[in-house]
């Protein structure tokens, strides 16, 4: 059973699992019907915030639950309170239902590296054991921390269930639609003046593969997943060839509000601190214990994403200048 299949990431995970002949039936759960084609996945319209979910689990005799239903953007969920409802209450209800279902033997949770927060006191790289230094009071970061808290509680109460928590770096790729991809797709990219965040990305294909990997093999524990290497924010924007607008940090919140109102991208305060200070995670355990090798590095995942965007204004302008120079030189040469 896969939750959150009406959104792209969930749908892709469900399709990938359904494509595996080793899995009999894949049930997709969400409140709204999915826009994407689900293929072999059987869609069941149910709300994880509602105890009805327990009946679905019992009725369909579910043995593995893949929880991808944590929402990152308040906009898509219909506001921040609704987002929190889906993330926290939804997870609680889902876990409560799982606890009552003796058939469930495996739980895979798609979490995020936002649980580590972002701030100036952060170590260069977070390992799975490290606690966040900067605690966020709002946004996905806080939700993810709470979701993981409930998941740990569930793992304690049901020691027979194999619980895998995947802390994934920001997904990126041609098909991903997230605050980060929208941010980079803006014609002029705003950044915080005087800071250059370190970013890590996970390619969407790797993310889907990792979910599949965790579902097929019993690997209990918490794992950081990210592509190798880091990109600094300025470097990423230069690669995109887009102009940068640098705002002092105290205007960041109001800039984000303007951007949100213009429906260009959806920022929460924790994303602003992420784009200010950045965050990198240690992926030693991803290889040693989880046994997963991402196909894309951070840089190549970003390049794949860039290819889907088309050239930015700076690239276009410099091409025009170069063409102009060539024409000018050609004219000089006669």
């Amino acid at each position: 059973m896969v939750t959150g299949v009406s959104r792209d990431a969930g749908a892709r995970c469900a399709r990938r699992l359904a494509a595996d002949p080793g899995i009999d039936t894949v049930i997709g759960i969400d409140v709204v019907p999915p826009r994407a084609e689900l293929g072999r996945v059987r869609f069941v319209r149910a709300d994880i915030r509602n105890p009805v979910i327990a009946k679905v689990i019992a009725g369909e005799d579910v043995d593995t639950v893949v929880h991808t239903g944590v929402v990152a953007t308040p906009g898509s969920a219909g506001g921040r309170s609704s987002m929190k409802e889906i993330n926290v209450i939804g997870t609680m209800q889902l876990l409560a239902a799982c606890q009552k279902a003796p058939g469930v033997s495996k739980l895979v949770v798609k979490s995020s590296t936002t649980v580590y927060g972002a701030g100036p006191r952060d170590p260069a790289m977070f390992t799975e054991e490290m606690a966040p230094r900067a605690i966020h009071q709002t946004g996905l970061s806080k939700d993810a921390v709470e979701v993981e808290g409930y998941v740990r509680g569930f793992a304690r109460r049901r020691p027979d269930v194999c619980v895998t928590t995947l802390r994934m770096a920001n997904w990126i790729g041609p098909q991903t639609d997230s605050p980060i991809t929208r941010y980079f797709a803006m014609p002029v990219v705003p950044t915080v003046f005087g800071y250059d965040a370190r970013l890590q990305f996970l390619h969407e294909d790797d993310g889907v593969e990792a979910i599949h990997h965790a579902t097929m093999i019993d690997l209990p524990g918490t794992f950081n997943l990210a592509g190798d290497g880091v990109l600094s924010l300025s470097q990423a924007i230069r690669r995109l060839g887009r102009p940068v607008l640098r705002f002092p940090s105290f205007t960041a919140a109001s800039t984000a509000a303007v951007v949100r109102r213009a429906r260009l991208a959806d920022f929460s305060p924790d994303q602003i601190t992420f784009l200010t200070y950045g965050r990198a995670v240690d992926t030693t355990r991803m290889r040693s214990e989880f046994g997963f090798e991402p196909k894309y590095t951070t840089a190549s995942a970003f390049d794949d994403f860039r290819a889907s965007l088309g050239p930015g204004a700076v690239t276009t302008a410099s091409r025009l200048v170069a063409a102009g120079l060539n024409a000018g030189l050609g004219a000089l040469r006669g």
Binding site: Y195, D196, R198, Y277
Partner: peptide
């Protein structure tokens, strides 16, 4: 690392947070 520009340049110049982890 809290200070604008200084923190950015320090990281690019090879500095990192004085902590046992790093």
């Amino acid at each position: 690392f809290q200070t604008p520009f200084v923190g950015e340049l320090a990281r690019k110049g090879g500095a990192t947070l004085a902590s046992n982890d790093d």
